[in-house]
């Protein structure tokens, strides 16, 4: 039962959603199953939150290294949760927008979540710069092609590219760096990306088929073996 029921669910739901594309009478059922999926996704968020509390709670209780920072995580989590679930400071009633301006939830989003999330990714600019200096070498023909394309795109996406080659006659305008950058993106880049997309597309289709036919069972863990 631990293996058969999940397999049956996957096969049934998978086939039904495929049929719903081809048979309009099943379309409504397909939509409902998508809605079920959306509702289960909410429980997946709860699972994530629960897991976070469990892990940091354990770390705190067992006084593991950096346990004090787990207090920060838990305080932040519960404060944001309370602000959102109870709509603290919300200018409207319980039916109003949870992210309404002026609510504690919106204030925490704007002043805690936003700066933290944005800065976390902004750090990547430093690492990209460091990698450019240390790792981006024209070691062979392939690396040189990559480097040249990157140079044209880097120059072409700033006004500098236009300034450098604006003297070109109209009959050679494809060699102007911004035009060349556009051409690279819309011709060789398109071809390369399309080859990748076709490959990934085929991979997704075959994996979906393996899942629906019950051939692929790794998601069941040990039970699926």
């Amino acid at each position: 039962m631990r293996r058969e029921i999940p397999l049956a669910i996957t096969i049934f739901v998978g086939f039904l959603l495929i049929f719903s594309v081809f048979f309009p009478p099943v379309e409504d059922l397909g939509e409902n199953f998508s809605l079920f999926f959306d509702i289960i996704a909410v429980f997946a968020f709860f699972l994530g939150g629960g897991n976070l509390v469990r892990i940091h709670g354990k770390k705190l209780l067992k006084r593991k290294p950096d346990w004090a920072f787990s207090i920060v995580t838990l305080v932040g989590f519960f404060l944001m949760l309370a602000a959102g679930l109870f709509k603290i400071g919300n200018p409207g009633d319980i039916s109003s927008n949870v992210t309404a301006e002026g609510s504690l939830f919106a204030i925490m989003y704007d002043n805690i979540f936003k700066p933290l999330g944005a800065t976390m990714y902004a750090l990547l600019a430093f690492f990209v710069a460091s990698a450019s200096y240390r790792a981006f070498r024209a070691k062979n023909r392939e690396a040189t092609i990559l480097l040249s394309a990157a140079f044209v795109i880097l120059l072409g996406s700033t006004p500098l590219g236009a300034l450098l080659t604006s003297w070109m006659p109209d009959s050679l305008s494809i060699l102007e760096i911004p035009n060349l950058a556009v051409w690279i993106l819309s011709s060789p880049n398109l071809a390369g990306q399309r080859a990748i997309i076709i490959g990934i597309g085929l991979g997704v289709v075959s994996m979906s088929l393996r899942l629906i036919l019950g051939v692929e069972r790794s998601y069941l863990g040990d039970e699926g073996a």
Binding site: A41, V42, F45, F46, G48, G49, L52, H56, F69, S70, V72, T73, L74, V75, G76, F77, F78, L79, M80, L81, A83, G84, L85, V98, T99, F105, M108, Y109, I112, F113, L116, G117, M120
Partner: peptide, 18 residues
């Protein structure tokens, strides 16, 4: 970093709930 983890998990939970 720890504050970000806690706050973002709760944010997504609240939005999904409502």
């Amino acid at each position: 970093e720890h504050l970000f983890v806690g706050v973002s998990a709760a944010y997504w939970m609240c939005l999904a709930f409502w």
